[in-house]
């Protein structure tokens, strides 16, 4: 069984053309289709006629606030996953956003693979609440129980290895740099150390465990220090 039964629709509400463009180019593939609203009015227009699987919402728009839009969205029962994107790292905004009904909050500047991984998790959580299991060629990942097996062989992963596996799963066929993974794993403090050896160590362990269970080598090392998950 393939997890993606239909194309997922994503609405990107972002006034900065370059950012919106990057997101569209990175996210659009065989499973995602993206639409862009460059301002509040366009966004209101789009959400009143269409439904989406996920909405990326920039808080600061030239003609209105993303928070307002969020309130509009939450007036009627809808099941879009909503990720707030903000240049402000204010805790209050984060709490307010999540309180009103956003599912996640990302602070600019962020990596596109980070965004893709979040979208992947939110769509899975929203739409496959009861049996949230993703598959690929015999590899089963249970997102709720946080367990992994290959055919019938269970694979025991640490919290970080599982986290990395999902991150790769949300970024299939994409080249992910060590830097992106380091930021994903340690947030703001990624650059505080002299090397990213810990990223290498985690990925190496993950690869080893997958190989021991007999999975085909989905996770490839590319250009010496980058990674790519092949499906």
């Amino acid at each position: 069984m393939i997890s993606y039964i239909r194309m997922m629709k994503i609405l990107i509400v972002e006034d900065e053309i370059h950012l919106a463009d990057s997101m569209v180019r990175y996210l659009s593939n065989e499973s995602y289709r993206c639409e862009v609203a460059y301002n509040y009015a366009e966004a209101i227009d789009k959400i009143s006629y269409h439904t989406y699987d996920c909405i990326l919402l920039d808080i600061m728009l030239p003609d209105g606030s993303g928070m307002q839009l969020l309130q509009e969205l939450k007036k009627e029962p809808r099941d879009e996953g909503i990720i707030i994107i903000s240049a402000k790292d204010a805790l209050d905004d984060r709490i307010e956003g999540l309180h009103i009904g956003a599912d996640d909050y990302l602070t600019k500047p962020f990596h596109l693979p980070e965004l893709a991984a979040r979208i992947f998790s939110i769509i899975r959580r929203k739409q496959f609440q009861n049996t949230n299991i993703v598959h690929q060629d015999g590899l089963h990942i249970d997102l709720l129980a946080k367990t992994v097996r290959y055919n019938d062989t269970p694979i025991t992963l640490t919290k970080k290895e599982f986290d990395l596996l999902l991150f790769f799963f949300g970024n299939k066929h994409k080249v992910i740099s060590k830097n992106t993974l380091a930021e994903h794993l340690s947030g703001d403090f990624a650059d505080m150390l002299d090397n990213y050896d810990f990223v290498y160590a985690h990925v190496k362990n993950l690869k080893k465990k997958l190989a021991e269970a007999g999975t085909p080598s989905f996770l490839k090392t590319i250009y010496g220090s980058g990674y790519k998950w092949e499906a």
């Binding site: 950012l19 990175y26 240049a87 600019k108 500047p109 962020f110 992106t180």
Partner: peptide, 14 residues
């Protein structure tokens, strides 16, 4: 914003 653009363009470039 420019930092975000740079970051994301590099992600695309990869």
């Amino acid at each position: 914003t420019p930092l975000a653009i740079l970051k994301q363009k590099l992600d695309l470039f990869l």
